[in-house]
């Protein structure tokens, strides 16, 4: 199974949560931390389970998510 990595840019994230509902595995949650703009950013809680499907990035209105995938 492909392994991936969703990287959420903390300072671009506004904590809207659209990525949370987009993630088919429910790997994303809102952080307790505040970012520089005063938002609670989204974080990938179980990065090792990420398959790199990029649905979170597709729905991110702030282009705050980059996605990598391991490919053979």
């Amino acid at each position: 199974m492909a392994k991936g990595r969703a990287i959420i840019c903390e300072h671009r994230c506004k904590g809207c949560g659209l990525c949370i509902t987009a993630c088919p595995q429910g790997l994303i949650e809102i952080s307790n931390k505040l970012n520089a703009s005063g938002f609670h950013p989204a974080v990938v809680s179980e990065l090792e389970k990420c398959k790199g499907c990029a649905l979170c990035a597709l729905m991110c209105p702030d282009v705050a998510i980059e996605v990598e995938r391991e490919e053979k």
């Binding site: 991936g4 990595r5 980059e66 391991e70 490919e71 053979k72």
Partner: peptide, 14 residues
């Protein structure tokens, strides 16, 4: 295994 960026900010975006 190579790591490939599958999603990133488009170049035409600032």
């Amino acid at each position: 295994m190579a790591v490939k960026k599958v999603f990133t900010k488009p170049a035409s975006m600032t």
